[in-house]
Design a protein around this nucleic acid. Structure first.
Lengths: 388, 388
DNA sequence: TTACTTTTGAAGGTCTCCATAATTAGTAAC
DNA sequence: GTTACTAATTATGGAGACCTTCAAAAGTAA
């Protein structure tokens, strides 16, 4: 059964009303007391009381009254979204990304650092340190100002924030990212698989904003998935959800091999760049390239269909590097899914691009704060970085 | 984001505290005010106030004080679990089951009516009517005393309570079960797929009580699934979740054919009874029967593995008629799943038997009431059958 | 009958909310 | 520049729900 809400005394009521005020005010421009009173359902005097308390605690700030208008100018209050900060870190193969966002989720600073795909563990971790430091400096913050950080990485991550298994970077296996990044910033450090974060980003600021159940496909040099169920990221009992690629009968692991088998690219092309040539040739109508893309789409669709049949999502989102070639990839993918599924979900292409993982990391940090700072169980405390 | 809890005035606080008292008292024996005060965190006088109000509303009842013990005997109050009733109906191929349970989920009356597997739509609906009427009569109730009813049926059911597609009983397709049963009883009538209800029953009173993520396999003359995610039944966007059997590459639909291909049963055996002979022979070591069971287990495991890889459940529950033969079925099933999955969940056999669907139907009815009658948004109103 | 234990009932106080009315600080019109 | 109008602020009184504390009541045990 759902966790019941405990009752309590009058201070509990104040707690709830303070929470209601914060909830109304977050992510919106400054409001007057009358407006707040209307939106919270509280009386004007009570609203003022609550607002004064929140102002003393540091959550709210009075801003200049709006010019013009009849009657006595009303005081206006805004949520101090800069009271705390969160970071989103994406440790990719070629790039480290760090986003600093305020409590409203507004991304204020972005740092992008290239890193060699061949970089080892120490070098990559060093690049992460440097990027985080650079981002903090740019924002004029120190690690102590950060209330929550989420790190996205490829591979399987355990609940403690350790990389349990990384196929793409064998050296990465075993690295304790939560601990490592925790040296640099305050607050909680979460670590999550990159595909899952990308999926989360789509439900936040991407094409999946309206959907409660989403299957996200990361199609690129690696293939991955992220599942959103009931509006929440689904991890599974041991963080192993979405690993449909492991099923040998579906042959998802072989999917990219089709792309690499193509011989139409200039000699000496880096195998990692080959995919781009295949898609480009398919776009120009090269029949062999079209056939290769179709075979790739079919294998991708097999895993996707299994997920769709299992979960019946409203929406499938195609993301990852190959989603840039959605014009040649989406149609065959859709056809293959339609062949197999009972009910056909919408199938859309991600528009978030390279930033999706880092954005999802920001969102996960915010959700963590939401649970611990603005929860109905605890109410709103003074704005302080939560204990780790 | 999660739906925020609205604030309010003092009556809201009373609402929450009343809810807390009800929550503490439900499903437990009568408690004294002192005990209630301790468990709710309220002061003694406040607890008394709340309890008196709930008693006036009809939710609580004073019972005889406990004999013996030191000091002045304390008044004791119990939750009036008989203030309302729910029904769970299982429309099976051979049997109609109706359970009547009180608000604590205690099943007080059970009716089991045989119905011919060949019965048409009208005959089957008539049997349902008769069984419901019989159950109400046995409980001394009328339809108006029923606050919620859930009907379990095979096939795909839409949100309005209509059978959209029934493969097992073609005539069943299109029947509006919610409407039909709604003629007999008050309150809400929910209709749900039987495999899902069986899965729900396992998390309530079965082997899955401790698990948040469960894959339930209905293995019998039909094969079906039920998914529990985050402790809740997962239906998907269009109630089509769990239809992994449709994926041609996994060949789930062919699974039972293996059992029917067996030639070791007495001539003229009803094909529906064949499975029992196969399992019995396998139990006695007949090598051909063992091989047939193994092939069946493999195909069952294929679909199960897809679900396990997709969701990473803590637990897989094997239910349905064939779960009686778990002694010969479970081991090969487990081996095949272990071959394919990244993380191996526990695999257990259902112990609820034939009643699981009806029990799950009772549970779904109770969950519906829980949401509408004892919700933090509304608080507890007077005990009246909720409007439809 | 007395001592002890525990619940009950009553009193007084505090907190948070609400409704209402008086005051204040602006704009608009003359 | 004064006056009317508008809308926010401030002040007041009251109600509801909670808390703590203490005396009275109703049992058991010696």
């Amino acid at each position: 059964m759902t966790e019941q809400l405990a009752g309590g005394d009058l201070s509990r009521l104040r707690q709830l009303n303070a929470l209601a005020v914060v909830h109304v005010l977050r992510g919106r421009p400054a409001l007057t007391l009358t407006e707040l009173s209307r939106d919270t359902g509280l009386s004007r005097p009570s609203t003022e009381d609550v607002v004064l308390q929140l102002q003393n605690q540091g959550w709210l700030e009075e801003v200049q009254p709006a010019a013009g208008g009849m009657g006595r100018p009303a005081r206006r209050y805004r949520f101090r979204s800069d009271a705390g900060w969160v970071l989103g870190v994406d440790i990719g193969g070629h790039t480290i990304r760090v986003l600093a966002a305020d409590l409203d989720g507004e991304v204020r600073h972005t740092v992008r650092t290239p890193v060699a795909i061949t970089a080892g563990r120490a070098e990559r971790l060093g690049a992460v340190d440097a990027a985080v430091a650079e981002c903090l400096a740019a924002a004029g913050l120190t690690g102590a100002d950060i209330w929550a950080t989420t790190v996205g990485t490829s591979g399987l991550v355990d609940a403690a924030g350790r990389v349990v298994l990384s196929v793409a970077f064998p050296e990465w296996t075993g690295v304790h990212l939560a601990q490592h990044v925790g040296r640099l910033v305050g607050g909680t450090v979460l670590v999550e698989n990159d595909s899952r974060l990308a999926a989360l980003a789509e439900t936040w600021r991407g094409v999946a904003r309206y959907a409660q159940h989403v299957v996200y496909l990361l199609a690129g040099l690696r293939t991955g998935t992220g599942l959103i169920i009931d509006g929440k990221l689904h991890r599974g009992f041991a963080q192993a959800a979405g690993e449909i690629g492991a099923l040998p009968e579906l042959g998802w692991i072989r999917a990219q091999e089709h792309l690499r088998s193509w011989t139409g690219a200039p000699a000496g092309t880096d195998p990692d760049d080959l995919a781009g040539y295949v898609f480009a040739s398919a776009r120009e109508g090269d029949r062999k390239a079209v056939a290769v893309v179709r075979r790739y789409a079919k294998e991708l669709a097999l895993g996707a269909s299994a997920l769709v049949l299992a979960l019946d999502p409203q929406l499938v989102v195609l993301g990852g590097g190959f989603s840039r070639s959605a014009d040649v990839l989406l149609d065959p993918l859709r056809r293959e899914i339609e062949k197999r599924c009972v009910r056909i979900p919408e199938i859309l292409t991600s528009t978030l691009g390279d930033e999706s993982v880092a954005l999802g990391a920001v969102k996960l940090s915010l959700e963590h704060l939401q649970e611990h700072l603005f929860d109905v169980r605890t109410g709103v405390a003074a704005p302080l970085r939560p204990a780790r």
